[in-house]
Amino acid sequence: MSRDPKKKPLTVEQKRYTELVSELVPKPQYGKNALLAFLFGGLVCVIGQLFTDIYRLAFGMSSTEAGNPAVATMILVGSLLTGLGLFDKIARYAGAGLVVPVTGFANSVVASALEFKREGLVFGVGSKMFMLAGSVITFGVVTAFIIGLIYAIFIL
């Protein structure tokens, strides 16, 4: 018999209760959340585009070249807002609009680094910095590898 708690079936009473809970508890407001995420996400992209244009016009870079410093600037802005304690307040409303772009990645790294600075440089900041972003990196690398493999086999 399986001992995995995930596979343990609910008793009749537990089932009845979980049904009662799901009836009573309101669902998150998906429509409103999606709209706010769309607006804030769009705003982040507009700001990103602004930086790209600034780098393109001020330093005479091509559109592709200007992309990298623009992303770096957005990371800086995300980190700065986290450090100032504003990011979590905005993200409460913006949701995925702020979390999905590179600003969210910056926030997850900086928030963890700030949080664990009291545990020291080695066991705190150094090892805990990627506690949230670590999954993104791991699965990003794995996905990139698989896509690369498909590309190499079928397209090249």
Partner: peptide, 17 residues
């Protein structure tokens, strides 16, 4: 928060519950 959930400055949506 830091023990049970996320770092305090991490930006997330909170559920109504």
């Amino acid at each position: 928060e830091r023990q049970y959930r996320y770092p305090t400055e991490y930006g997330v949506h909170r559920k109504p519950t």
